[in-house]
């Protein structure tokens, strides 16, 4: 009896909506929901499922449930912990340099405004971010090769003994950061330039009347005005840096020693070199959680600032 009552109560909800407007809404929403379920939700759930198993791609029939063992192993794996540390250093170091350099570049391009030279330079400045990261890695691999590369050859011309850029633990990660900064500073610069252009000229005129110097203008007018833009840029670049892989794959393969082992490279090796899909999936889930956490904090901070 109770079952009958329940099924009667559910029936209207399951029935197709009579309202044509609601039906039209469903027609538009359902494809997006299916898309999300198939391409985002299902792979994520399957990753979590795999992360709870001791599984190898070459022996999937023999996989066995191990609960959270992969997560415990990861959090005690010195190489994984080192990869998290390296990723954090890379992310903070790259973004800090990009913000500083991008701000000064944006100021330069703002001063050139619609000048023909400025337009050409602006187009040239964004070229690095148009190059595929794997090609960027290869290009810098050749340039910075200590035996055959042009960088050390030029340095030797002025009496400087160039370092082993990717082979010296003191230089390996800073070199990867420098390549990353070279490629992505233009992106941050474009965002900041868009923000700077939108500042009313009256503010600049008032500052000029008050006798403000360039750093006063930057500190009290420009940076507050483009704060939101900078934060959005930082959020996007944090996500990018957590995914950075190509440059390391081509130039250092995580070395020298473990100096440039990033979380993505660690996960790649587990998944595609050792085919330990359970362990690798656990690492991927942890990266995703870190990414969600960092992004959520940044977005909350952005909203608070907007209020």
């Amino acid at each position: 009896m109770a079952q009958l009552a329940a099924s009667t109560a559910l029936a209207p909800a399951l029935r197709a909506p009579a309202d044509p407007e609601r039906r039209a809404m469903l027609v538009f929403i359902v494809p997006a929901v299916i898309y999300l379920l198939l391409l985002s939700v299902f792979p994520f759930i399957y990753s979590v499922y795999l992360s709870l198993h001791d599984a190898k791609l070459t022996q999937m029939a023999r996989k066995k449930f191990v609960g959270f063992e992969n997560y415990v192993d990861l959090l005690t794996d010195p190489l994984f912990l080192k990869s998290i540390q390296n990723t954090a250093v890379l992310t903070v170091g790259s973004i800090a340099l990009e913000v500083i350099l991008a701000f000064f570049c944006a100021k330069v391009f703002l001063s050139l405004k619609e000048n023909r030279t400025g337009q050409v330079m602006r187009s040239m400045a964004i070229l690095p971010m148009m190059i595929t990261p794997i090609c960027v890695g290869l290009i810098f691999g050749y340039i910075l090769n200590p035996t055959l590369g042009i960088a050390n050859y030029l340095l030797s011309g002025v009496g400087i003994d160039g370092p082993s850029w990717f082979g010296d633990p003191a230089w390996a990660l800073p070199t990867v950061i420098a390549i990353n900064v070279w490629q992505w500073t233009p992106f941050m610069m474009l965002l900041m330039l868009a923000g700077l252009v939108s500042i009313p000229s009256s503010l600049y005129e008032a500052a000029e009347l008050e006798g403000a110097k360039w750093h006063h203008v930057a500190r009290w007018i420009e940076l507050p005005a483009i704060r939101d833009v900078i934060l959005i840029g930082i959020i996007l670049r944090v996500i990018d840096n957590l995914k950075l892989f190509d440059i390391v794959y081509v130039t250092t393969r995580g070395g020298r020693s473990d100096a440039t082992e990033l979380v993505t490279f660690f996960t790649y090796r587990q998944q595609f070199q050792f085919f330990k899909v359970g362990y690798g999936s656990a690492a991927a889930v942890i990266i995703l959680l870190i990414s969600i956490l960092v992004t959520t904090i940044a977005v909350k901070y952005l909203r608070r600032m907007q209020k």
């Binding site: 200590p146 160039g162 082993s164 082979g167 020298r256």
Partner: peptide
């Protein structure tokens, strides 16, 4: 070894030899 030999793999080793280094 040549500069950077700590990060040499197959290709780097061969290239250094072929370049007479």
């Amino acid at each position: 070894g040549p500069p950077g030999v700590e990060s040499f793999a197959w290709d780097e080793r061969a290239n250094a030899f072929m370049q007479g280094k």
